[in-house]
Amino acid sequence: MVQRPPRDGGSVDRPADRGQAHTLEGVVASLILLSAVVFALEMTAVTPLSASTSSQHIENQQEATARGVLASASETGALKRALLSWNESSDQFFNTSNLGYFTTDSPPNEFGEMLNRSFNQNGVAYNVYLGYQNSVGERETQQYIYQGRPSDNSVQATWTVAIMKNDEIHDYEENPTGTLVGDEPSYFAPPASDSSVYNVIYVEVIVWRI
């Protein structure tokens, strides 16, 4: 017995081999519990840990706010004045940079101030696009304000503005210059018809939280 080879000595030492068995069991049991939680997290589509900064309720508020701003700006005429404030010599809107559209600063006009009051102070970014019909009847888009690529949780509000042939181009202070839109070939939207309606601008505001 005493002279047995070491392999049998192992059976004598069994309690010693079980020295860490309970620790191992504890670790394994914890792993099972944690993997159950991870599995449950992966199964649900939206959890507090999902990479989203928004909720449906907030998106609804932003969309309604954007629509309210557009409606207000349209009612006071600020929206149309902003669209008609066109610099004929540089072929872009007044007060824009070389890019031809506004970026981080909102336009220095009444429409821009409305957007500013509603969004800028609240950590919200927005883009404004102007859709119009080109000379062959297809829809084209011009950027008016571009603050970046919208996130997946962005919302959109739209408003249509009819530009008439006898509407006047406005200067940088939004005063009419006397030049009619119909007589201004550099304006971003071409005449869409021969009637008194020059073109219909489809103003699209995209809002998202940053």
Partner: peptide
């Protein structure tokens, strides 16, 4: 060596209980 078994049981149990509490 049997003394180490008790210590081992304490460690194992506390790891398990910690995980359970976390969950």
């Amino acid at each position: 060596r049997r003394g180490q078994t008790t210590l081992d049981f304490a460690i194992g149990m506390s790891i398990f209980l910690l995980a359970l509490t976390f969950v």
